[in-house]
């Protein structure tokens, strides 16, 4: 594997994402029980864990799609969803939260492309409508992105005319079009037919090598092994183990990680 091209930030840099003691409950069900995580600029963090471990919920807390109950999350030196003013912490308005989200790209399990818009229109919607970019430049950049993911000929196709894998790649291009500082992937391949998973993972591997900061929630252990700088294993709402992929995946120290990985290996 060639990671030489990768831009690795100096060790002294500030983390781009900083989460401390993050708690989240849905009713009586406590899904996150105190998560701590730092993500450095340019780092690719893959979050693994069984279903119901809270990994998707944690990801959705990072861009405040879910409000956390306790703790603290910071992206790019700004606390997500709140602001400290004169010694008191204030909730931000919906509008201010919207502004905070504009530097974070997100890719969903179900793609969530806008079905009434073509691939190109999907991609330029946020740059033109939210970031106020010039339409011509947005279209040019969108075409560049579509070319990079190999779908330039599908620019005028509607999402329903594309395969699942193509839709997800367009969704990735849509998230990239806002030139995000951070990309969140919420189980991007879980809704895909097995034969379509590869093309999406290939696109994501490209991004990882270009030095984009990524947090990826997935079940694809192969992707974690090849593209991750760090693997975080979650279970029962806590981080049970984290480290270099070769260490965590090859020699898991925690019994629950071992159990999860052994099941995975049996399955495949």
């Amino acid at each position: 594997m060639n990671f030489a091209a990768k831009v690795v930030a100096p060790v002294t840099a500030q983390p781009l994402v900083r989460a401390r003691n993050v708690h989240k409950s849905f009713g009586d069900n406590e899904v996150l029980k105190g998560i701590d995580l730092d993500v450095m600029p340019g780092e690719v963090v893959v979050v693994l864990g069984p279903s119901g471990s809270g990994k998707s919920t944690f990801l959705r807390c990072i861009n405040h799609l879910e409000a956390i109950d306790r703790g603290y999350i910071e992206v790019d030196n700004e606390q997500v969803g709140y602001q400290l003013r004169r010694g008191r912490l204030h909730k931000l308005s919906d509008r201010a939260i919207a502004v905070q989200r504009r530097k974070i790209g997100m890719v969903f399990q179900q793609f969530n492309l806008y079905p009434h818009m073509t691939a190109l229109e999907n991609i330029i919607e946020a740059p033109v409508g939210v970031h106020g970019q010039n339409r011509k430049q947005a279209v040019a950049y969108a075409m560049e992105l579509l070319t990079r993911i190999g779908l330039a000929d599908k620019a005028n196709a509607y999402p329903r005319q594309l395969s699942g894998g193509q839709q997800q790649r367009v969704a990735i291009a849509r998230a990239l079009a806002i030139r995000p500082k951070l990309m969140l992937f919420d189980e991007p391949t879980s809704a895909l037919d097995p034969e379509l998973v590869g093309e999406v993972l290939a696109t994501m591997r490209d991004l990882a090598q270009q030095g984009l900061t990524m947090i990826v929630v997935t079940h694809e252990i192969g992707f974690a092994r090849e593209a991750a700088d760090r693997v975080v294993f979650m279970d029962g709402g806590v981080v049970v183990e984290e480290g270099k992929p070769e260490a965590v995946l090859a020699n898991p120290t925690h019994p629950r990680t071992r159990l999860f990985l052994s099941r995975f290996i049996e399955k495949h």
């Binding site: 861009n63 799609l65 919906d94 509008r95 919207a98 502004v99 905070q100 989200r101 504009r102 974070i104 997100m106 969903f108 179900q110 969530n112 492309l113 806008y114 919607e125 946020a126 409508g129 939210v130 806002i178």
Partner: peptide
């Protein structure tokens, strides 16, 4: 679909724009 609302939220659209465009 609820996912559509979520997408507009994640992209930092205002409520009014999300309603009008999406």
């Amino acid at each position: 679909d609820k996912g559509q609302v979520e997408a507009t939220d994640a992209f930092g659209m205002t409520r009014a724009r999300a309603l009008r465009r999406i």
